[in-house]
Amino acid sequence: MISLIAALAVDRVIGMENAMPWNLPADLAWFKRNTLNKPVIMGRHTWESIGRPLPGRKNIILSSQPGTDDRVTWVKSVDEAIAACGDVPEIMVIGGGRVYEQFLPKAQKLYLTHIDAEVEGDTHFPDYEPDDWESVFSEFHDADAQNSHSYCFEILERR
C-alpha cells in the first residue's frame, strides 16, 4: 500500500524555501509514529532540507540527478522507488510537492495534518478530489505552549 503523509496549511501550503513555516512538535511526533519502520520516499529537495537519513526507516530518494550519499537509496523513477521498498505492507511518501503529485494517483491512504495557519509558501500539496477519499480518523488539537497553531490529524482512505 502506498501512503502519503503531509502537513498542510491553508491553501495546501506545505513548504517555503525548503522548510515548513510553522513550529508543531506534535506533528513531528505524528510523522515519526506513522513512518517508523517503514520505507520513506522523498525528493532530493526534501532530502536536502532534512540533511540526514531518517533513523529507523529505509530512505529512498527520487531524483533525476541521483546523489552520492550511500546512506540512502537513490532512484530515478516512481517504479524504481516502489521496487526499492521491497515487499512491505506500507510505503510512506513524505514529499515534496512534485513527489506527492507523482504518487497521489497510486496512493491508497493519506495521513494529513491540517494546520490552521495562513502562511506564504512556494510548495503545495497537490489538489485531490475529496469525494474519492473517506475520512477514517480525525483528531483536532488547539494551539498550545509547544505548538504554534491549532491542527487536525486526519487519515483518508481511497474509496
Rank of each mutant, 00 (worst) to 15 (best):
P126L: 04
T73A: 05
F153Y: 04
P66D: 02
V13K: 01
I82Q: 07
Y151K: 11
F125T: 01
E157A: 09
W133L: 13
P126H: 13
V99A: 11
A143T: 05
I60T: 04
L110N: 01
G121W: 00
C152Q: 13
E17W: 00
R159P: 14
Y111K: 02
L104R: 02
A6S: 15
V93L: 06
F153M: 12
I41P: 01
R44W: 01
E139S: 06
D142V: 12
N34K: 13
I155C: 07
V13N: 02
M92I: 15
V136K: 10
L24Q: 13
R71V: 05
G51H: 12
D69Y: 10
Q108T: 11
H114G: 14
V78P: 14
I91M: 14
V40F: 14
E101W: 12
S150R: 10
S49Q: 02
I50C: 11
I41A: 15
S135Q: 15
S63F: 02
A81H: 01
V119A: 04
T73R: 09
L110G: 00
V78L: 04
S148C: 00
T73K: 11
A7N: 02
R52K: 08
M92T: 15
E157G: 11
Q65T: 10
I94P: 01
Y100V: 01
S135T: 14
D116L: 15
R71I: 09
I155H: 06
E118R: 15
S64Q: 14
L156Y: 15
A7G: 00
Q102F: 15
V10M: 00
V99G: 13
A145V: 07
Y151S: 11
D116V: 15
P25K: 03
T46L: 00
G121N: 00
M16C: 10
Y128T: 06
F153E: 03
E134H: 10
Q108K: 11
L110T: 04
V72H: 15
E48K: 13
Q65H: 10
E129L: 09
K76N: 06
D142T: 09
L36S: 06
P21Y: 01
S49W: 01
P39V: 12
D11R: 14
D69H: 06
G86R: 12
V40I: 09
R52A: 11
W47N: 05
K109F: 11
S148V: 00
S49N: 02
S150W: 11
N18K: 05
N59Y: 03
A117W: 01
L36P: 00
E118L: 13
V13H: 01
W74H: 11
S148F: 01
D132A: 08
K106L: 05
C85Y: 15
N34H: 10
M20L: 00
N37T: 06
A26Y: 09
P89C: 13
Q102A: 11
D27G: 00
L156H: 12
E80R: 05
F137L: 12
G121Y: 03
V78H: 13
D87N: 09
I91W: 13
M92Y: 15
G51N: 08
Y100N: 02
P55Q: 07
P25V: 03
V10N: 05
F137V: 13
T73V: 07
D70I: 07
F103E: 00
V75R: 10
W133K: 01
P25N: 10
F125A: 04
V10A: 14
E129P: 12
D116K: 15
K38S: 13
H45S: 15
N34T: 04
Q146E: 07
D116R: 15
P130V: 13
S148A: 00
A83S: 08
N147W: 01
S63T: 12
A143G: 06
H141S: 07
Y100D: 02
L62K: 02
N18L: 13
D122L: 00
I50G: 00
H149V: 12
D122E: 02
Y100L: 02
K109Q: 05
E90A: 06
S138T: 11
P105A: 10
E80A: 04
F137I: 15
H124V: 13
I61G: 03
Y151M: 06
D131Y: 12
G67K: 06
N37D: 07
D142Q: 09
F125S: 01
D87T: 09
S77D: 14
Y151G: 09
V88L: 12
K38D: 10
D87A: 06
T73P: 11
T123G: 01
A84D: 06
H141C: 05
P105K: 09
C152W: 13
N59Q: 04
P126A: 14
W30P: 01
G51P: 12
V78D: 13
Y128K: 13
H124L: 05
E129M: 12
K76P: 05
A145D: 10
E90H: 08
V10D: 03
K106V: 11
R98A: 09
E17L: 02
K76F: 12
K38W: 06
L36C: 02
K58F: 06
D69T: 06
E90S: 10
H124R: 12
V13W: 02
P66V: 10
S135L: 14
D144Q: 05
R12M: 14
F140K: 13
N23V: 08
E48S: 13
D127V: 13
Q102P: 06
E17P: 00
P21E: 00
P105N: 09
G97D: 03
W30G: 13
K106E: 11
Q102N: 14
F140L: 14
R158F: 05
Q146G: 09
D87Q: 11
V88H: 14
T73S: 09
P53L: 10
G15A: 00
D11Y: 01
E134D: 02
Y128E: 05
R71L: 06
S148W: 01
A19D: 12
R52L: 08
W22H: 02
V136S: 09
D87R: 08
Q102D: 07
Y128A: 03
L62H: 09
L62T: 15
C85W: 13
W22T: 01
D79S: 06
K32V: 04
V119D: 10
T123W: 01
M92N: 13
R159K: 10
L62V: 15
R159F: 13
A9Y: 02
N147V: 03
L36D: 05
P21K: 01
A6Q: 01
S138D: 09
M16L: 05
H141I: 12
E129V: 11
L24C: 04
D79A: 05
D116M: 15
F153Q: 03
P66S: 12
V78T: 11
D11N: 03
V136Q: 08
W47E: 04
L28S: 01
N23W: 04
I91Q: 08
M42L: 09
A19N: 13
V10W: 01
D87V: 07
P25T: 10
I60L: 12
R33S: 11
M16T: 10
K106M: 04
L156E: 04
C152T: 15
V119W: 04
E80M: 06
H114C: 14
S64N: 11
R71W: 07
N147Q: 05
L54V: 01
V10L: 01
E157W: 06
I5F: 04
S148E: 01
G51Q: 09
N23T: 13
G86C: 08
K38Y: 12
P21F: 00
S135C: 06
F103G: 06
L156F: 15
